[in-house]
Design a protein around this nucleic acid. Structure first.
Lengths: 202, 202
DNA sequence: TTTTGGTTTAACCATATGGTTAAACCAAAA
DNA sequence: TTTTGGTTTAACCATATGGTTAAACCAAAA
């Protein structure tokens, strides 16, 4: 049987509720019920709704500002980097499909509150300098179509993340059910990098 | 001077507040204050928070399920359609940059509630049949790289919409301010279709 | 067996929040 | 000038909600 501590049970429940409802839609009682504990314990262990939320939010945030560094700063050739990044990023998001919408929703509504905290947590934000230089270099060498590095990064991340956020919209526009949609998403792990790389070819 | 009716003032204020805070974060008092009217008038004109919200939501939704039909069902060649669609879609989103996050956030949290209503409002959802056929046709003729039509549509829409949703994240990752970000967005009106079309070329 | 210190609970509390109501208002019609 | 019907307001109301507290619990140490 599971021998989780109360503290852990609360965190797990809070994660679920906050991701589902967002901060303002989440109810402490709801979290307590899902954790199967008395509501007072939420405050005993985490003080306040805000404090509890901050913990869940920061953890979630880490998940979508991914190990860009690792890949971006390596010495691999550009196309290889793209393949690797897209593959790993999609897998990461796929593991927690609710995270992107949650994080971006809360981040948009309280930019000041987190921008700073998040920056220190990732020590100054990710360093994409090397990747940027590489893109410019390849463009100058005439190996790829010229493109603003920021634009390329934006395109790649959009293609990775947005399908998860836009799911209900896509299902409607495309008239497809959950299963068909999942199939499409699965294909994207390789499809996206192929698309991007082809877009860069001359 | 503005001679707006109370009803219109309420709607405008509600739009602002709901888009900013979402349903559960929005406060009726806040809407009343922004509209400069007594809170009771909200109920006098719109009955309840839910009813008021539904109106704002449906209007917002229309904005991001755009005139796909018009373009998708036309007889223009594929690349031309893509250019036209991307251009118009980005302009539409640009006019209301808060809408996508708002709609997708609420839609994700209450799929059942709206999926149906929205379907009837758009009479059965957009018809992309012709565009789908066209993509398959071009692929078979060997004019473009083969790609699942749904995947292509997803890619295009992701590239158009996501930058607006992911703004705070991108600004952090790329270390750029509002102005620089706007510049990047402006470029995308043409940049995105170029990117997509190039990705389709053999 | 008793003490101790962390854990859990039921009962509360203050405030926020969506919503209602009766009375006051006010411009146009009679 | 009076009546009428829609509009606006202040005062309320019931309930939801985040948070607190004193007492009960309970396992391990003494």
């Amino acid at each position: 049987m599971e021998v989780t501590t109360t503290e852990a049970k609360i965190k797990a429940a809070a994660q679920k509720v906050f991701l589902e409802k967002g901060f303002s839609g989440a109810r402490m009682q709801d979290i307590a019920d899902k954790a199967g504990i008395n509501k007072a314990l939420l405050h005993y262990y985490y003080r306040s709704k805000d404090k509890l939320f901050d913990i869940i939010f920061m953890e979630s945030f880490q998940k979508i500002i991914p190990k860009i560094n690792l890949i971006a700063q390596s010495d691999a050739p550009l196309f290889e980097k793209i393949e690797k990044f897209v593959g790993e990023y999609i897998v990461a998001i796929n593991a927690d499909p609710m995270v992107p919408l949650f994080v971006l929703h809360e981040l948009t509504r309280h930019p000041e509150k987190f921008i700073q905290k998040v920056f220190s947590a990732t020590d100054g934000g990710p360093k994409v300098g090397k990747l940027v230089a590489q893109i410019q270099e390849e463009a100058e060498k005439g190996n790829i179509r010229p493109i603003h590095p920021a634009t390329l990064l934006m395109n790649i991340m959009s293609l990775c993340i947005f399908p998860y956020i836009g799911k209900p919209m896509f299902q409607m526009v495309l008239s497809i059910d959950d299963k068909q949609f999942s199939t499409l998403l699965a294909q994207r792990k390789t499809e996206v990098s192929a698309f991007v790389i082809n877009a860069l070819r001359l």
